[in-house]
Write a protein that binds this DNA or RNA. Structure first.
Lengths: 157, 157
DNA sequence: GGATCACTGCGCAATCTGCCTAATCTAAGA
DNA sequence: TCTTAGATTAGGCAGATTGCGCAGTGATCC
C-alpha cells in the first residue's frame, strides 16, 4: 500500500505517543478530525497497522536473557517441530530461513542458567538435528519501525 | 516484577483486543474499574508495559522480505558500526551477541533484489569484516508475548 | 489488636468517540 | 476545458469514557 507524507506523520506521532486519541492527533497534525479517522481506518483496513497491542518487556517480567537459536531440522519434520516450538512460552518468535531445513527462533530466559533449561526443552525433540545459540548481550537498536515508515512515506511513486 | 493472575488476564485481554478501554476491560475481567486502572498504572510504571505503539507491518508498507544478518565486527569499531546500522531504515533491530564482535540484525527489503542493495549498504562500512545472511521464508510463530505472560502470571513465588 | 494495602462501588465534570451533513478542494478522465 | 469521484474540512449531537476522588470493606502482616 502507498503511504503518503501525512500517513507517515500520523504513524510517527502514534509511535511516539500511542495514548493520544484521534482528536488530539488531529490537533497535532493540524488536520481535521475526520481526516485522521479516515486515515487510521484505511491504515488498519490495509493491514499497515496490525493493532495496538501492549508492548510487554520480557525483562521486566523476569526474563532478562534473550538469545537466538538456529535449528537444523531433518526433512519432513517441519510441521511437528513448529508445533513443538509454538508450545514453548519462552519461544517468542520463530522463522524458517534459507538453508537446509533451518529455523531461527528468539528465546528468552530467567538467567543464563535458565537458558540452558529452555534450550534443552527446545532442542529435546525429534527432528531437530542440530542447534546453535547466540546470547544477546546488548540491543543497540531495539525493534523499530519509524525510520522505515518515514522512508516509505517520502517515497514518491 | 511479580505478575499475578489478574495482571496476566489483563495483559492477555489487552493483547487480544487492544482497542478496549479501561471500563470495558474492567467489565470483561469482572473487577472494578479502579482496579484495572491501578493495575495498568503499576504495569506501566514498572516497565512491564512499555507502551501501546502501533504494530506496523513492513510487508504492508512494501517491504515483504525479511532477513537476518550476522555481522562480524573488527575490534574497536563497535560504536561506529552501531551508528551506521542505526542510520539504515531497513535495519529494524540490532543486537550484539556472543562471539568475537558479532552482531545480529533484522533487515527488511522490497524484494530479493532489493535485499542485495540493503545488504550492500549495511556491510559497506569499515569495521564489518564478514556478513552472512539468512532470508526468512515463513514465520510460523510471529512475535508473541502472551504465552510468556501467562507463564509468568501462574508462577507462584 | 492495630496498620497497611488493594479492591469495590459510587459520583462528577470534562473530554472524546462514533456518526452524520454540507461545502470546498483536488486531481484525473472525457 | 468541463465533469466527476474521492478527500478534506468544519460543525453538530448523543452517548460513552476518562481522570479523579472518597468512604467502606476485606485481607495480610507485625
Amino acid at each position: 500500500m502507498k503511504i503518503d507524507e501525512l500517513d507517515g506523520r500520523l504513524l510517527t506521532l502514534l509511535a511516539a505517543e500511542p495514548r493520544i486519541g484521534v482528536l488530539e492527533a488531529s490537533r497535532r497534525l493540524a488536520v481535521a478530525r475526520g481526516t485522521v479517522q479516515a486515515r487510521l481506518d484505511r491504515l488498519q483496513t490495509n493491514g499497515v497497522i496490525r493493532g495496538f497491542g501492549p508492548d510487554v518487556d520480557p525483562a521486566a517480567l523476569g526474563y532478562p536473557v534473550t538469545a537466538f537459536a538456529t535449528l537444523e531440522i531433518s526433512q519432513g519434520q517441519g510441521a511437528d517441530v513448529r508445533a513443538h516450538l509454538a508450545s514453548v512460552p519462552e519461544v517468542l518468535e520463530l522463522h524458517t530461513i534459507t538453508g537446509h531445513g533451518d529455523m531461527l527462533c528468539r528465546l528468552v530466559a530467567r538467567s543464563n542458567a535458565d537458558l540452558q533449561r529452555v534450550i534443552d526443552r527446545v532442542v529435546g525433540f525429534d527432528g531437530i538435528v542440530r542447534a546453535s545459540t547466540a546470547i544477546v548481550m546488548e540491543n543497540p537498536v531495539p525493534l523499530r519501525i519509524v525510520p522505515l515508515v518515514q522512508q516509505a512515506a517520502s517515497q514518491r511513486e
